[in-house]
Amino acid sequence: MSTETEREELLRVEDLRKYFPIRGGVARRHRGDIRAVDGVSFTLNAGETLSVVGESGCGKSTTGRMIVRLLEPSGGRILYRGEDLTAARGGRLRALRREIQIMFQDPYSSLSPRMTVHDIVAEPLRVHGRYRDGGAARVRELLDLVGLSAEYENRYAHEFSGGQRQRVGLARALALAPRLLVLDEPVSALDVSIRAQVVNQMRRLQQTLGLAYVFISHDLSIVRHISHRIAVMYLGTIVEIGTRDQVFTAPQHPYTRALLSAIPVPDPELRGERERITLTGDVPDPSDPPSGCRFRTRCWKAQDVCATETPALTGRTGDGHASACHFPDNDLAVVP
């Protein structure tokens, strides 16, 4: 891939929000909103992997589904190659969806049990009118691309292992030759050894096809292996964003430090060298988030200003590493 292509900004998310209304009573009156995503902004370049990490319920998957327009945003903009995805309708949205695809978490439920592997992979080609012109050959090419033999194409999804099913899902996502893939926890349902195989396959495909990934995960070991940049989410907002090495070796936000401290250390002799940070208290209600900094109710560094002023996601070192904290860490945190 050329340097010029690598520098192309493919995706820009600006102040993205998704509120789910809460209704109650006989009249189903509006009683508030669950702020699943509340002001998320980031960019993604061609050929790059941006991983979005955080605890369950932080808004990672909701963000990914809005990027592919499976969910309609409550506010903000999603720009794909400079074009506003949130304003696209009809035929234009259909055309843009060829370039942006999603791969789901659970290979057991995301593939139809009534369709053969051939039909599963061919379905996007048929929907977009591309099957008649060499569609059968394209299916075999895609299966080979993800490491599956063409002899499997007449089998059904239940005849495969979890890792093989997820490869089928990846082949389906690649059918229309997209430029951007949203990978929503793509390996969390797989055994550890199979996870590594699937992730390595994704990396090879990225290098071969020039793909960009939004990789959604809570597994920081996998994230460290596949990412170019990382965005850390907490309660619907991004609290830190930077390159992989910046986030792993010099985390600025207390929440990021807590997440990194929970990564398992395989060498018993090294376990005592890293401080384990245990967060106290429950995750706040997303329909009524805390004032000021949303993490302050669980943060050991919180002071009065944290309750009254919302910290901006600000870079302090001039190298793209930004955090939303009034008292960011600047010291190195060694993460084995």
Rank of each mutant, 00 (worst) to 15 (best):
E4I: 14
A95S: 14
T237C: 10
P73N: 08
R17L: 06
E273V: 03
T3V: 09
C293N: 03
Y131T: 06
T310I: 09
I67K: 00
I78Q: 04
R298H: 07
L220Y: 06
S51K: 04
T3Y: 08
I222Q: 12
R17Y: 08
R294W: 11
P266H: 13
E48Y: 08
D288I: 00
R229N: 08
V305M: 03
P290Y: 04
L279V: 10
L10C: 01
R296A: 11
S188V: 15
G47E: 02
A324P: 00
I230H: 02
V53G: 02
F215C: 12
H218W: 11
A27N: 10
G54F: 11
D33Q: 03
S193D: 15
V68N: 10
D285Y: 12
Q206E: 10
M1L: 08
S61F: 09
T310F: 06
D319V: 05
H118K: 06
L174T: 10
A322P: 00
D144H: 12
S217K: 04
E151W: 00
E9V: 09
L50K: 02
A87W: 00
I277W: 02
G320I: 01
P186E: 13
G292Y: 02
V199R: 01
N330D: 12
G281A: 14
E269A: 14
R97A: 04
H228G: 06
V168W: 02
S193L: 13
S323C: 13
R126G: 05
L181M: 11
M202L: 15
P284N: 11
T116I: 09
Q164D: 12
W300Y: 07
D267K: 05
A177S: 15
R97G: 04
W300E: 13
L71Y: 15
E48F: 09
D33V: 15
G169Y: 11
N154C: 01
H321Q: 01
R31D: 11
G47Y: 01
R126E: 13
I120W: 03
G59M: 11
G210F: 10
D184T: 07
